[in-house]
């Protein structure tokens, strides 16, 4: 997951093209949607690491609508909202609904790249942690089987050793007979 797959959602073709160009230059994989409805269709078809969406869009589904749907489809998709200058309240509302971050227009690209870097690092950390957990679970499971088998085996062997000891100590039987009985017992086992 070196480079994130990003869905850019904006009804303004100029912004869309500009964002796409700059992000591709940075090495990101980009797809675009011209409104919220198209964005949701695309989100339902395939997974995006990040959705970068304008807050206010025509056509019935705005940025918040995209955010809610993206999170419903896959909780692991992170959503960054782009808001008009000065509409911080809306942005905070969006953060409460699960957006990871927001940017104000006009977009400062250095800032955007920095935020995306952060998201990428966070995703890598989460993936590392879950990979480690998985590895730990597998190791734990296989070693548990071995240890438990050995635990039972040791107990059985101890039981047999006690039986051998009892036989060897048996009085009223010739030493050779005791040894023979022990050997017979071992052959059976």
């Amino acid at each position: 997951m070196t480079f994130l797959k990003i869905l850019v959602v904006d009804d303004d073709p100029v912004t869309r093209t500009l964002l796409t160009k700059r992000l591709i230059n940075e090495g990101y994989t980009i797809d675009t949607a011209e409104d919220g409805r198209v964005a949701i269709e695309k989100l339902a078809r395939q997974f995006y690491d990040v959705v970068l969406t304008d807050l206010i869009m025509p056509g019935g589904v705005d940025g918040i609508g995209v955010l809610e749907e993206a999170k419903r489809i896959n909780i692991k998709t992170e959503v960054v909202l782009i808001t008009a200058h000065g509409s911080v309240d809306n942005a905070i509302e969006a953060m409460k609904k699960g957006a990871v971050d927001y940017l104000q227009k006009p977009i400062n690209f250095d800032e955007l790249f920095l935020r995306l870097d952060k998201i990428r690092n966070l995703k890598m950390l989460v993936k590392n942690a879950s990979d480690l957990r998985e590895a730990m679970d597998v190791t734990e499971k296989t070693s548990a089987e071995t240890i438990q088998d050995l635990e039972i085996l040791v107990t059985e062997l101890n039981g047999r050793l006690s039986a051998i000891r009892a036989t060897l100590l048996q009085e009223g039987m010739a030493p050779e007979s005791r040894i023979r009985q022990v050997l017979d017992g071992l052959d059976e086992a």
Partner: peptide, 22 residues
């Protein structure tokens, strides 16, 4: 714990198996 053992630790306990668990 599933990867723990009492062998050599406490002879008062004996392990028993039920299906895949001890």
């Amino acid at each position: 714990g599933s990867t723990e053992s009492l062998t050599g630790i406490c002879p008062r306990f004996i392990p028993k198996r039920h299906l895949r668990s001890v």
